[in-house]
């Protein structure tokens, strides 16, 4: 599944992710993995809407043992990834915070719900994020145990 996400399109914000979550459930992905994938996709989708220059793509690949979510845009790029990954750090515009977003938890949340999280970004070029979510059932249980 691949979705084109438009910059600033708050009206449809989250609709691709909601669709992804229900498609994953329909495809037989367990509820916990579908929920985690939905959260990762949603945060990524909102990031594309709020921060990207020209929108980007949100792709989902279902593998036998994992769900892969990939986000890509063509700018503006993130100057300091460590800073952007700091909980609470945000450069969100007021219109986004008015809607309940831009609390500086998006990237952190994506990382927390992914088993593998990779982010590459270059100023003026763009950002690419790849997330791997293992299909392991009750992730909360797994986290506690391991």
């Amino acid at each position: 599944m691949k979705y084109a996400i438009r910059a600033g399109d708050i009206e449809h914000g989250g609709s691709a992710s909601a669709r992804i979550k229900s498609e994953l459930s329909r495809a037989g992905v367990d509820a916990t993995t579908a929920r985690r994938a939905g959260i990762v996709a949603f945060e990524g989708e909102m990031n594309l809407i709020v921060y990207s220059d020209d929108g980007g793509t949100l792709s989902v690949i279902v593998e036998p043992d994992a769900v892969m979510i990939e986000l890509e845009d063509t700018g503006p790029g993130i100057e300091d990834i460590d800073l952007a990954m700091t909980p609470g750090f945000s450069t969100a515009p007021v219109w986004a915070t008015d809607l309940g977003f831009g609390a500086g938890m998006g990237l952190v949340n994506m990382q927390k719900h992914s088993d593998i999280f990779e982010i590459h970004s270059k100023l003026g070029v763009g950002t690419r994020i790849q997330c791997r979510i293992e299909r392991k059932g009750d992730w909360a249980m797994n986290r506690r145990e391991g």
Binding site: E11, R35, F42, V108, N109
Partner: peptide
């Protein structure tokens, strides 16, 4: 809604003052 996404770890009832479309999308996810 960022906090709702970040912090809830189980099925829950959501109490909110936001009525934008994203609320239901978050609820669905």
């Amino acid at each position: 809604l960022s906090d709702v996404l970040a912090l809830t770890e189980e099925q829950t009832t959501l109490i909110t003052g936001m009525v934008n479309p994203q609320v239901m999308r978050v609820a669905e996810i």
